[in-house]
Design a protein around this nucleic acid. Structure first.
Lengths: 194, 194
DNA sequence: TTGCAAAACTAATACCATTAGTTATAATAA
DNA sequence: TTATTATAACTAATGGTATTAGTTTTGCAA
């Protein structure tokens, strides 16, 4: 009757992540997850706290994976080269993991320290890369905000099919990133002028 | 017993929009809407098709309002001035109508002609404004995509509290938009060179 | 004043998440 | 090997959704 499937939290989160990426985040229900694991919904409660905890874990997983992806992409690269690589990696991640990506963005019930830490890791990476441009403290913050904006905006719009297909999406991204890099240079230059 | 409250679709959508903006989009339920209207949930079905239809109407309302806002902001302005005004209006709209704004972005079940039309209205407005820069057909599309990306990305991140508060958010937007305008100029210039 | 279309209702269904309490199993101790 | 025990997975039950069916009531129009 209860054949001890051998469930654990990792399996549950993994199934939830697949569900999110393949079927969409609205399909993340205990019912669907349980079905995929050949188990009754209440059984999940032996391993997780409830649906909200699963969503929080998905956010953590998403941010961790995104961070790794970005870090690897920028590894051993600096300045323009690093930014370009990071931008492509970001957009590619959002495309390959549409469900998980959305959880990296979803408003985290503030005061969730773990989520904040994970998010800060990503921001620290951007900060690192931007450090080579010689920006003022404030300009660096503006630059980080702008970078996050263009990457998230582009990813979100592409994900929802907002861009037609006749004109190359990759080229749009390239032009946008190019524009961003020029902005960095202008900010840096402003700083060198006495 | 049934005092004929005088319900109609407009009222329902209005209440749903308020709910979305004030309590968050997850609070848009027939139950909550009915409560606000002093009515039982099934009564709503005399005026709307179901919860999905309410969400679709919210998307339409959001896009229509956003379009009006942007159009008014850019009225009688051209080029840089128009873009700057439009950008501020966009971000302000997202701040003032956080719930409604999210519906303007939410993936529209493709093949929803009305939604597509509403969205195209906004794109046509952007297209109009960008027409004064003398861009090639393709560059104009890249420019529209980039503009939408920066505006949505910035709005979405600000909405979720992703930006700290020590450094001026308005200034970040200003710098980002300034960068965008410079990009437009570079694209235009590229086009004038034989 | 009567009749009717429709507004709002109650009741019922089906699907959620979640809690409480039960059964069965796997691992450990004797 | 057997007995003990912790706990995985279960069934049953609760309360919340959206929605449908069928009923009552009401306001308007003839």
């Amino acid at each position: 009757m209860s054949p001890r499937v051998g469930l654990d939290q990792k399996m549950i989160i993994k199934v939830a992540a697949e569900l999110a990426d393949v079927e969409g985040i609205e399909s993340i229900t205990l019912s669907n997850i349980a079905k995929k694991l050949n188990v009754r919904p209440p059984s999940l409660f032996n391993h997780i706290q409830g649906l909200p905890s699963i969503k929080k874990e998905l956010a953590l997983l998403g941010m961790a994976k995104l961070f790794e992806t970005l870090k690897d992409a920028a590894y051993n690269k600096t300045k323009d080269e690093a930014i370009i690589a990071l931008a492509y990696a970001y957009v590619t991640f959002a495309n390959e993991h549409p469900g998980l990506y959305q959880f990296t963005i979803k408003a985290p019930d503030t005061s969730e320290k773990e989520l904040e830490d994970a998010s800060n890791q990503i921001i620290a990476l951007l900060n690192d890369i931007l450090s080579d441009y010689g920006l003022s403290y404030e300009d660096k913050i503006h630059a980080i905000r702008t970078l996050r904006s263009i990457l998230h905006g582009f990813s979100a719009l592409e994900q929802m099919g907002a861009f037609g297909l006749q004109i190359s999406i990759k080229e749009s991204l390239q032009i946008m990133v190019e524009g961003y890099i020029q902005l960095l240079k202008r900010l840096a230059q402003k700083n060198t002028l006495t």
